[in-house]
Design a protein around this nucleic acid. Structure first.
Lengths: 338, 338
DNA sequence: ACTTTCTTTGCAACCGATTGCAAAAATAAT
DNA sequence: ATTATTTTTGCAATCGGTTGCAAAGAAAGT
């Protein structure tokens, strides 16, 4: 059983308050007092019980990190950055796996039980209702990788997926492709909807370009592979914008199996720039989300809310960047129509 | 501010103990009492503060999940399984990223501060000192993916890496390869040491087989790729046992770049069977660790320790299995020496 | 109906800390 | 040296619960 405040107080021959004060900065303690206490504390190997103190201070320094994306490799990176970032600020991530959870109420209850100071909802597929539920429960929340709502109800950090779709479109057009395809993730994922919207919208400005679209069942290798195999049955497009990297890599494998060459026969551009996209035997041209900045922003916002819970909700949207690799041709074809 | 026990007690017109009792199972409460309390609780949206109760019960249901493997994709799977498994038992994982941490004392202090009921050290590269530090601090601990110590000091769950090395050896020998290589991970990782040991030891029983070995700098794609590029400079072996999958996939890319074909020109077998190994455009033959069983066992052991902290430390070692894919030839060559 | 036994309930102390307040000690001002 | 001011310290209440104990109530036994 660990040593408590009282033990230290007794050994140092001082009051319990004195001990408490030496361990809370900004409190009034004389130099000698501090010395005595610190000596006793060291001898006993004392370190204050954060949970007990949370009772009176109302702060646990616990942050719920909730996600349902435990299969997309990009999220390992996300978790890495979040845990490090939070730790650096003296916060502890309480990891919550929402894979089989549909009711926000349960999560709220859980966060309440553990009096989490705040919650970070890191998911591109969870409905906005989750973040909202936390907010309504009075728990500071920031949503990472989500779609901004029209009237900001909670902090949202991420990229503009519509813009990313546009970016994919202009990139493909600039490479001279004229028959394009959008191969999305699940049709009900807002990320897929937005990316498609931006993609199609931009292409509408290029009348000489034709475009088709379809959806894979999930953001997964297999789904991407299946969908691409299907597409390859009948005349496929010259190039595809894949819903995300893992999907695109699945598509790549389908293309290879079909005996076609990338980028000569067919081009593909993904989104995320997850580690594997950079592997030389994958070498996927893709659109990079600035994960590090997104995570940093989230942490900034959540700590901001700890200080001022009534802070106005904010959207922080970052630009993406094309990562040039080997799945898109470089040459610019001269178009007959221009 | 959330409603408390007292609020409920007042609204129900009963004592605080009564409320407490209706929410602790095994406590003596009459049916009508329970009803009244539950009604009031529902009306107020009350749920007990787990942290406050931990003060008296000495149980937080918080489990430290500490790891430093935030770059090996297999660990996303590991985190997924751990979080789900723990949640199912009503435990909450407190994720600790030890990437930049070298001193176990800090982690121990942290776990103490949050009074974690137990700790799971999930890492193949962290020194045994970490687990030991927790144990010495009186915190129940189980080590996943670690090397068993001679006298069990703490629960260890994982595979027998020596045996896995043997398995790789016998597999390669059975395929008729006679010039083999071991391409390990970091030389100081116990997993690499053990795998090599088993591999070489087994091969010693096959005098017609020659073997070389070398090490990559890390369990990473790039390290594997670099090392294989180096090996390809001078006469490479016919087949390699790669330190793990990610390393092996890096090696695969080097081999492809070098214009050699797998498995015709060179064979490779990995270890882990991470998701990407099964991707059709990777298709790595590998040795599978039963991750699910390992995780389940860890959780079983840690919950066991919660009930009986003095339970004898135990090693649970699981067998591995060859996952046949496309990076090893199938034909059995007739050996000149037999 | 009365005692005995068992179950329910409330009181009050406690878990490990923090903090407002007032007394005590140290410093500064006169 | 005395008083006024500031700083340091301890007391005691509190945070949101749990739990041993004894009193009250219900059920069972005779």
């Amino acid at each position: 059983m660990p040593t408590t405040l009282k033990d230290v107080a007794e050994r140092a021959g001082v009051s319990r308050s004195a001990v408490s004060r030496t361990f809370t900065d900004g409190a009034s303690v004389s130099a000698k007092m501090r010395q005595r206490v610190e000596k006793a504390a060291k001898e006993l190997g004392y370190s204050p019980n954060a949970l007990a103190s949370s009772l009176t201070t109302g702060r646990t320094r616990l942050i719920g990190l909730v996600s349902n994306n435990f299969h997309n490799p990009i999220f390992l990176e996300v978790f890495d950055l979040f845990t490090r970032g939070l730790q650096d600020k003296g916060l502890r991530p309480l990891l919550v796996n929402l894979t089989d959870e549909t009711d926000p109420a349960n999560s709220v209850k859980m966060m309440r039980q553990y009096s989490a100071d705040g919650v970070i909802v890191a998911s591109s597929t969870l409905p906005a209702g989750f973040a909202k539920a936390f907010r309504d429960a009075g728990i500071p929340v920031v949503r990472a990788f989500g779609r901004p709502t029209r009237a900001p109800q909670a902090h949202v950090v991420g990229i503009d997926n519509v813009e990313a779709g546009r970016m994919a479109a202009t990139t493909l057009v600039a490479r001279g492709y004229t028959r394009l395809g959008f191969m999305g993730g699940p049709q009900d994922a807002t990320s897929t909807q937005d990316r498609m919207h931006g993609f199609l919208d931009e292409l509408a400005r290029h009348p000489h370009v034709t475009v088709t679209h379809s959806f894979a069942d999930a953001y997964s290798f297999d789904a991407g592979r299946q969908e691409m195999l299907r597409l390859l049955q009948s005349s496929p497009a010259q190039a595809y914008f894949g819903g995300d990297d893992v999907l695109s890599i699945g598509a790549l494998s389908a293309i290879a199996d079909h005996g076609l060459r990338v980028p000569d026969d067919i081009g593909i551009i993904g989104l995320n720039d997850m580690t594997m996209a950079g592997w030389e035997n994958i070498n996927l041209t893709t659109i990079r989300q600035p994960i590090q900045q997104i995570v940093t922003s989230c942490i900034e916002l959540i700590t901001g809310m700890l200080d001022d819970p009534d802070r106005y909700p904010e959207h922080r949207i970052f630009a993406c960047k094309i990562i040039e690799r080997g799945t898109l041709r470089h040459e610019i074809h001269i178009l007959s129509s221009s």
